[in-house]
């Protein structure tokens, strides 16, 4: 797992370089955004279930997926779906704090598409609901923090599609 700092250090180390001007500027802006990131993480952790409820209502609830024959039909599958939504939210929040997507690659996306395919979970609907979660979080946190979280929701989507 990497964050914005360790990623820059690792790539400089491989080249045997000191942290150059542009790396230092990147780190400065990361440090400056720290307060925003910590506050966003706190708001999200205080309202995870609201976020998931709104996300499901927005993207899934009133579609065929929740009816008989749909992939969220029977409560068992519905529960598995909201559990995964909670995972996405928590890991996106970790990545936002770290300022780096590697935790998503390592702990969420690695093998996820294959797992979903073998379980018959529709990837398209998953991507749609992650996008809906991005909108919900954006509305809740405001544009600055919303944009930062959006980067990692988009990362999940591109890793799935």
């Amino acid at each position: 797992m990497q964050d914005a700092i360790t990623t820059l250090i690792n790539s400089s180390d491989v080249q045997g370089k000191y942290l150059d001007e542009s790396s230092l500027e990147n780190l400065q802006s990361y440090f400056r955004s720290g307060d925003l990131r910590a506050r966003a993480a706190m708001s999200i952790s205080a309202s995870t279930s609201t976020i998931v409820t709104k996300t499901v209502a927005k993207a899934l609830l009133y579609t065929d997926i929740t009816g008989p024959g749909g992939n969220m039909y029977t409560c068992r599958r519905y529960a598995a779906c909201i559990r995964d939504m909670e995972y996405f939210l928590r890991y996106a929040t970790y990545a936002m704090l770290a300022g780096d997507p590697s935790i998503l690659d390592e702990r969420v996306l690695n093998g996820l598409k294959e797992t979903y395919n073998s379980l018959g979970v529709p990837v398209g609907a998953t991507v749609r609901s992650v996008q809906a979660m991005k909108d919900v979080v954006n509305e809740m946190l405001g544009a600055d923090a919303g944009r930062e979280m959006g980067v990692y929701f988009d990362h999940i989507c591109s890793g799935l599609s």
Binding site: L24, L27, Y30, F31, D35, A38, L97
Partner: peptide
């Protein structure tokens, strides 16, 4: 999060 907040705050100094 508070600990991380301090770490962010001291970041400019470390740089």
């Amino acid at each position: 999060l508070n600990t991380i907040g301090h770490f962010f705050g001291d970041g400019q100094e470390r740089l």
